[in-house]
Design a protein around this nucleic acid. Structure first.
Length: 272
DNA sequence: CGGACAACCTGGCGGC
DNA sequence: TGCCGCCAGGTTGTCC
């Protein structure tokens, strides 16, 4: 589901509906959705707090409240959106958590697979204190990338999926970035030449930027908060294109398993 | 450090 | 139409 571009799109869509709102009652029907603190503490603590800012870190959505941070991770099938409180709630049978807002609307968390989690903490580090750099920040320079790659030996696809190495890259954009850099997904990190490292650094940035520009990819479950689909999937070079012709050379895109994940690549453009 | 794999869950799809 | 197995955008923990 949601990788950096999808999560960023959700943040941009819900931000204007949340900034300045004061939170009221909480409702939930799947206890495990609420990770921290226990549900009764969560409800008591969040009521009355207002939303000052909404931002993203890696694949986490962070709402800065008066005293705490409301953090949401969508995992595979989570959706976060604001709807009128009197909208037919049954229309979305997968809503497992919601918060009343002071304007008659509700922040709803819908998640068919129930992997997603919400947290209420004072410090984001309580949730995750080992996240790599944000690839779309100016601070993510080639030097930084080169430095983080130094000494690493695992295969490059596994490394790109590791959130402590670089934040926000998931299975889709890892494949897309490797294609753009013309690097075979089974190459090891220490086998990359200097020019390949530079190509990969820029490919990560361009693949993710394109995803954000197209408002995320709607392969299966992902929808923007307004319910419409993103368009990023229409621009993929390899993800979901097994057996289709490579957009660059016409060779047949292959799908294999790398690091336990379905992995798409062009055997001609990305030789081993 | 890292690879392999199971868990957590449910829905969609292809095949028979 | 029905049933079955397989696959899925993520992350974490365990075992080797």
């Amino acid at each position: 589901m949601p990788e950096l571009p999808e999560v960023e799109t959700v943040v941009r869509h819900i931000r204007p509906s949340l900034i300045g709102r004061t939170i009221g009652a909480m409702w939930y029907d799947w206890p495990r959705t609420i990770h921290t603190p226990p549900p009764s503490d969560f409800a008591a603590r969040i009521a009355g707090q207002s939303v000052a800012a909404v931002r993203r870190r890696a694949k986490y959505i962070i709402c800065e409240l008066t005293h705490d941070l409301l953090v949401v991770h969508l995992k595979m099938t989570g959706r976060l959106y604001v709807a009128d409180a009197d909208d037919d709630h049954a229309a979305d049978r997968w809503v497992h958590f919601r918060l009343d807002l002071d304007d008659g609307r509700q922040l709803r968390f819908s998640d068919s697979r129930k992997f997603g989690r919400v947290y209420l903490v004072t410090d984001f580090a309580q949730i995750n204190d080992n996240i790599g750099p944000e690839p779309l920040d100016d601070a993510f320079t080639l030097d930084v990338f080169r430095g983080r790659l130094a000494g690493r030996t695992r295969n490059i696809k596994a490394l790109l999926l590791d959130q402590s190495f670089v934040a926000g890259v998931g299975n889709i954009y890892a494949d897309e970035a490797l294609f753009r850099a013309a690097i075979h997904p089974e190459r090891t990190a220490d086998s990359l030449r200097a020019d390949e490292v530079a190509a990969l650094h820029s490919a990560i940035i361009t693949a993710l930027s394109a995803g954000v520009q197209h408002e995320g990819a709607s392969i299966n479950w992902y929808r923007k908060p307004d319910g419409t689909k993103g368009n990023s999937q229409d621009h993929f070079y390899v993800y979901g294109r097994a057996d289709a012709p490579c957009r660059t050379c016409g060779a047949t895109i292959r799908k294999i398993r790398v690091a336990g994940r379905g992995t798409h690549f062009c055997p001609v453009c990305q030789p081993l």
